Structure formats: structure tokens, C-alpha cells
Computed example of a mutant assay.
Amino acid sequence: MYTPAIIFKDDKLKIIDQTLLPARLVYLEIPDIATCIEAIKTLKVRGAPAIGICAAYGLFIAARSLSDKTYNEFVHYMDTDAALLFGSRPTAVNLGWAIERIRLIYQTRADLPVSQIINLIRAESIHIHEEDIQACTDMGYHGLKIVSNPCNILTHCNTGSLATGGWGTALGVIYAAQKEGYDIHVYVDETRPVGQGARLTFWELMQNDIPCTLITDSMAGSLMKAKKIDLILFGADRIAANGDVANKIGSYSLAALASFHKIPCYAVAPFSTFDLSLLSGDLIEIELRKSQEILHIYGYNDNLSEFADVYNPAFDVTPAELLSGIITEQGIISQPIAKHILSFIE
């Protein structure tokens, strides 16, 4: 049903270069940690779960090149690579979550030969990938509980197979609905300035024969007012302990409009996206990206970026009270979200 964004086969890692979509579908091999970091920074691979999976495999590739090192040397080089990888994108919590799972292996197994530690890192990387595939399936079917039939769904950014290890988070709910025979139609937000909705989600849905309509971000409110939207679904890059959700810029606006128009609005994310160390979304670091991402849309040259005043946050934070709930692989966290998050974890 879906095109995998990440393929790990014969100990080689390949990703879809998402900067080339929709014009070209190209798999890019990741031969070393530097290429992995560059792919994450430049959005060749993107989406919180996919970034975490890619990071885990990237650390395995790094580890494999250190097989001739002593244990102390191995840990030193791995920690250096992990720190560089961690800094590649600050908002998506899955990146740090996956790195810490790999670090826990090599930092606590001084009793083993380096070759065996490398094998354990490989196994953990595959396990992280397989966990996400299952989580995507589970989120999709849990999400069916809030999908009417028929249903017009509005989605933002890209939350499908290009952003995860499986069929997706928010798009996974849509794929599950399609598989179960629901009569669904999807409005796809363009998602400026990089256009993940227009370039990636619209492409994914058309590849899977799901009825969809592409709109610019500023059209969403008019569709809600016209009662053409039954449900809003988007993903998450980091969720605070109180249920505040950091997601692609524009998500907050959709949630606020949905609240005004009394349209159900859900974030869809696995528990690996939750960061319970942060009490609220106010503490989430928001990545600021280069001005060229906006200026290039309108034909400005690179010289202007040196002195032009451009504000380009990659994410915003939706307060939990604006959401109807959060769909996870363990079920739906309903309002009051902060209280119910704790009950899910306990």
C-alpha cells in the first residue's frame, strides 16, 4: 500500500531523497554518519519517527567502521558522532530518543568485545524500525474510532510512509480507513514554505488512489466555515507532559480554527514522540530554518538572505486544550489530556 521511505537491507541503509519529490523517486544510500547527518539537516529524510529510525541506523553504520578500535576508543568516537547527530534537528524528540537507545547499549557493555557491541547496535536499530511499523498500524486502527463514514479529513504537512517506518501517523488513520472501505476524502494543506503537503502528502495519497484535494494553507478556514471539513488530523514532533503538541508550523492555526468551528482535531503520534521531561510546550525548542526556504519561493536570490529580515520557524506549539485528543499506538488520549497521559503511562 505504501512506499517505504527507509530501507535497510544487507546492512546497507537507503532513504528516499524527499527533496526530489514529486518529480523524481530516488533512493539515496547512506554510507557514513556524515551523510546521515546531512540528510537529516537538509530534509532528505524528515518526519519525527523517520528521523529517529535513520539516526539509529546511522549510528550502526558509524559503529561498523570502528570495529578495530578498543572499547574506550569506540565509545569516544561513538559519543562524538552521537552528539553531532543529536544537533542536526532540535525539535523532533524521536531523534534523541533513538540515539539514547543506541548509546545505552555501547555505554553499558564494556564486558563485550567491540564486534559483539556492534551486532547489538544493529539489532536495536532494526528493532526501533520494526516497533515503528507496528506502532503505525496500531495508531491507524485506533484512529478509526473517531472517523465517520463518509468523512472529509483535513491534514497538514506529511505524516505518511515518507515520515515514518510504516504507513504513517495521521495518514496511517486515513490508510486504515481506506483499507476498511470507508468513504473518505482528504483536503491536503500545501504546508508552506517547504510544501511537504503539496510535494509529499498529495503525492502519497494519489499513489494510493485516495480521493484528495490540494489547498493552500490560507484556505483551510474557509472550508471549515463552509462545513466541508469533518475531521482534522496532524502529526507531532514533540509532545510535552501536559499534552501540548509541537508540530509543523501552521498546526496551531488549524487547531484554533477547528476549536472555533467545533470540528474535532487530533494529533497522531507514537509514545516515542512524548517528552515527559517538559512540563509544557513553552519549553520546547523550536527550530529556526534558513531564510532561503521562503525567499526562493518568490524568486529572490541568495544575496538578499544576508540582510533580509525573514522569520522562518519550522514548528509551532498547539496547546492541549485546543485538541480533541491524541491518537497513540496504545489508544486515544482524550480530554483532559494531561491527566490521561499519566494514566496511559502508569
Rank of each mutant, 00 (worst) to 15 (best):
P4T: 01
I6K: 02
K9R: 12
D10T: 04
D11I: 05
K12P: 02
P22D: 03
A23F: 03
Y27N: 10
P31F: 02
A34P: 02
A34R: 14
I37P: 08
V45H: 09
V45F: 01
G52K: 03
G52L: 06
G52M: 05
A56K: 05
Y57S: 07
F60W: 05
A62I: 02
L66D: 03
S67Y: 05
E73G: 07
F74L: 04
M78F: 00
M78D: 06
T80D: 09
A82D: 12
P90F: 09
T91F: 00
A92I: 03
G96A: 09
W97M: 01
A98W: 04
I99S: 11
R103A: 14
Q107M: 08
A110S: 15
L112H: 07
Q116N: 12
I117D: 07
L120R: 13
I121F: 12
A123L: 14
A123C: 02
E124K: 15
S125R: 03
S125V: 06
E131F: 00
Q134M: 08
G143Q: 03
S161P: 01
L162Y: 00
G165I: 04
G165L: 02
W167K: 09
W167R: 14
L171Y: 04
L171T: 11
V173Q: 06
A177I: 09
A177G: 05
Q178W: 00
G181V: 09
V186R: 05
V188C: 11
T191Q: 10
P193D: 04
G197N: 09
T201F: 06
L205K: 10
L205F: 04
P211N: 10
P211D: 12
C212L: 09
T213R: 08
I215P: 07
M219N: 07
A220S: 13
S222M: 13
M224H: 03
M224V: 05
A226Y: 04
D230T: 11
I232S: 06
I232D: 08
L233Q: 11
G235D: 01
D237M: 05
A240D: 11
G243F: 05
D244A: 11
V245H: 07
K248S: 09
I249Y: 05
S251R: 06
Y252S: 15
S253Y: 01
S253G: 14
S259F: 00
S259G: 11
K262T: 12
I263N: 02
P264V: 04
P264L: 10
C265H: 01
A267S: 15
V268D: 09
S272E: 12
S277N: 13
L279F: 03
S280A: 14
G281D: 08
E285Y: 00
L288N: 15
K290W: 00
S291C: 06
S291R: 14
I294G: 07
L295V: 11
G299I: 13
E306T: 07
A308H: 10
A314G: 11
A314Q: 00
T318Q: 11
T318L: 09
T318M: 07
L323C: 11
S324C: 05
G325Q: 03
G325T: 04
G325D: 09
E329R: 07
Q330W: 03
P336Y: 12
P336G: 13
A338K: 15
H340M: 10
I341E: 10
L342S: 15
S343V: 10
I345W: 07
